[in-house]
Computed example of a mutant assay.
Amino acid sequence: MRHRPEALLVMRRDTFGVQFGHLQLDRLRSLARLGDPVWSEDLDEPSTRARLAEAEVLLTSWGCPPLTAERLDAAPRLRAVLHCAGSLRPLASEALWQRGLLVTSAAEANARPVAEYTLAAIILAGKKAHVLAAQSRVRPADWSAVQHREDLSNYRRVVGIVGYSRIGRRVVDLLRTLDTAEILVTDPYADPAEVAAAGARLVGLDELLRRVEILSLHLPALPATRHAIGARELGLLPDGATVINTARGSVVDTDALERECAAGRLDAILDVTDPEPLPPGSRLAALPNVMLTPHIAGSLGTETRRMADHALDELERHLDGRPPLDAVTHEALAVRA
């Protein structure tokens, strides 16, 4: 008979309420034993500490406090931390890796809505829909003027993907639904054969920037990636190119992008910014050729249950002695979100 470990969910109240519906909780109860409280966002509260002392598995998500050495010492039976969200950075500590625990992430499940959003942004960029929408509010009678423009097209566009991450890979796959001329990828860690098999071509960053009409960014926020797309890189893009950022705001130099968009040379679709949100009175936010959305590309609402399901898949595999789907190591965290 399969062992049912003691499990504790650690996340914000609102996250727990959205991520774990009755289907997820029923499945969790079939796999593990849940005490009282089932959920907590405070690992230092006395009743939670009592549960932590018995916990063999933590299911964590947004709002989980850092798993410090002192908190981990209060969980001597702990064997696995299964994260029901993407990045582990807010909760990971050196002590987490020293304990030799199984640590997994639901980043793969979160990649799907981000890639879907990015594809939609690429399609809108091809038609300059975000720019025309702003213009149409000011000049609603001028619609006929756009009908003969050759640049409003998704046919044979050159699209550039910076970062062949799990999201970048999904975007390349989704782009196969479009009749793009070429998909260019740049990533120092990518395998050229793997990229080619996906229908794209691996090139250097400068070559990619000089050729693409739509640039989509999929880099993690790391010290090495801060302002990876700065004034020099933006200057290499052709006139009329669109910059799409669904990754992290810090990978783009905001001031440099503002200058290019204000001049009308580049357009942008930004789901993330640096800072986030942009300050009141931001010139970038007011530009008609810049579309801003409030960090909505990733999993929201019931989409987050896909990540809870992923964590429950990891739990079931762990209990069956099967390898994890998406284990995270200390070394891997250095190059991923």
Rank of each mutant, 00 (worst) to 15 (best):
D274A: 15
G264V: 01
G264H: 13
P280S: 02
R265D: 05
D253H: 13
P294I: 14
C261T: 14
R265I: 03
A256N: 14
V290G: 00
N245V: 11
P294N: 00
S282F: 10
A285H: 00
P279F: 04
S250A: 14
R283P: 02
P275R: 08
L266A: 12
D271N: 12
D267R: 10
V243N: 01
P294R: 06
L284K: 02
P288F: 05
A268E: 04
G264N: 08
D267Y: 06
N289D: 06
R259S: 15
P277T: 07
G281T: 10
D255W: 10
P280N: 06
L292M: 14
D274H: 11
D253M: 02
V290M: 00
T242F: 04
A286K: 13
L292F: 12
L270M: 11
L270A: 05
V290R: 02
T254A: 13
R259D: 15
T293N: 07
L257P: 05
M291C: 11
V243Q: 05
L278Y: 03
M291F: 14
R259K: 15
P277E: 11
L257Q: 07
P288E: 08
E258T: 15
A285R: 02
E276S: 15
P280G: 07
E276C: 15
L287Q: 04
I269C: 13
D255M: 14
D274G: 14
L270Y: 05
L278N: 01
V251H: 03
P294E: 07
L257E: 03
L270P: 08
L266Q: 10
R248Q: 09
D255K: 12
I269G: 12
P275K: 11
T254H: 04
I244P: 14
A285S: 02
R283K: 14
V272G: 00
V243Y: 00
D271K: 11
L266T: 08
A268M: 03
A247V: 06
L292N: 11
S282T: 03
T254K: 06
P277K: 04
V251I: 12
P279K: 03
P280M: 05
V272M: 04
I244N: 15
S282P: 00
P279H: 00
L257Y: 01
T246W: 08
N289L: 01
V290H: 00
D267M: 10
L292W: 10
D271E: 14
G249W: 03
T246I: 15
E260G: 09
V272Y: 04
P277F: 12
P294Q: 04
P294F: 02
C261Y: 01
A285V: 10
L266W: 05
A263I: 09
R265P: 00
P275G: 07
A247H: 06
L278T: 07
S282H: 04
A262S: 13
P288G: 08
D267S: 11
R248I: 15
M291H: 10
E258C: 09
L266D: 02
S282D: 10
P280V: 03
V290F: 02
V243E: 02
V243G: 07
T242V: 11
D255T: 10
T254L: 13
